[in-house]
Design a protein around this nucleic acid. Sequence first.
DNA 1: GTCTATATAGGGATAGAC
DNA 2: GTCTATCCCTATATAGAC
Lengths: 200, 200
Amino acid sequence: MIEKNTELKIIEAARKVFLVRGYSGARMQDIADEAGINKAMLHYYFRNKDKLFESIFSESVNNIRDIFSQSLNSEKEIDNTLINFIATYSEFIKNNRYLPSFIINEMQQGSEMVEDLFKKNIKMYPIEFIKKLKKEQSLGTLEKYDPLQIIVSIIGLCLFPVLAQPVLKILFDYDDNKYDKFLTERVAFLQKFIIKGLKK
Amino acid sequence: MIEKNTELKIIEAARKVFLVRGYSGARMQDIADEAGINKAMLHYYFRNKDKLFESIFSESVNNIRDIFSQSLNSEKEIDNTLINFIATYSEFIKNNRYLPSFIINEMQQGSEMVEDLFKKNIKMYPIEFIKKLKKEQSLGTLEKYDPLQIIVSIIGLCLFPVLAQPVLKILFDYDDNKYDKFLTERVAFLQKFIIKGLKK
DNA sequence: GTCTATATAGGGATAGAC
DNA sequence: GTCTATCCCTATATAGAC
């Protein structure tokens, strides 16, 4: 087993701690423990907590942006674009449970630093997808809903069960396995439900 | 103007601070300032930060539960039940923006205290609504989806735009007014979209 | 009940040896 | 580059006067 370099170990540990606990809940000591080093090293590599946080937050925003544009901008026609997006995006979110709530929460705090980092990194506006929607709407195959309402709905339908996972698990009395099954089955459900909801 | 009693002032201030900043981000000093008193008073009325937090978290869970069961358990048939729920629930969430993310986030931390409080207060499982869905499904008027998938979808469609508000405002370049309009228009959109998606 | 002053702990940051 | 020891500020909590 090759020993990973320290900077990488720190990044991975910081990612784990920040994504679950958030900026204010994260402890430098916890990150050091998770990385198997001491606190001083954190400051040696990343001057302070803010700088370390910035690097984690930025990469998180980039990850969300990449998977989003990558899975939405397909050359296929509308049905397959939707089916493909729902599957790809759901899979990504399932494997990155804490990403959405992390970003949403930090943004909610309204700190300048976070908002600037977000603006700097995000740059995504699904123009191509909106064009595709509008074309179908004018052809009369899709209901004439506001494209942004549609997009927020699709993303929300994929994200919400992962965002609210800790709450929903208790409400439904589902263990990890059952909830995982719920998420897996959800993909097919969403593909059908969304397309039916949009079609004229 | 009648002077509110101190305990009430503390509760209101704590609510404001905890809901936005969360447990770890909240400062007793900020709560004292918001209430217009000094820190010592917080400890006089609520022994410590944990106790104060508990009372806010509990009332938050109760609020969510009340509005949920209240707006879902109507005597009407399925279409009107849905239309009524979407309108009532959306309105409530709009007026209580921070409630959902507060509960979801604290639950994500996985502390025993929070999880116990949640379990103790929540007790909601929409049995009547599920019955109503299943009846329509067996009559062939609704698609035979898993009722829990349906419920998670409806709630998610209402909650997500409020949960993700700080992110979506930036993505869409919407100011407060435009976003408010977006949320208002969303109700009618959701009523149509959801019913179309569910109908056979 | 309400205040000021202060104790105590927690956590981010630095100095300095190796 | 990595460690130990320590600094020092911040935040919670308490003591005690009024």
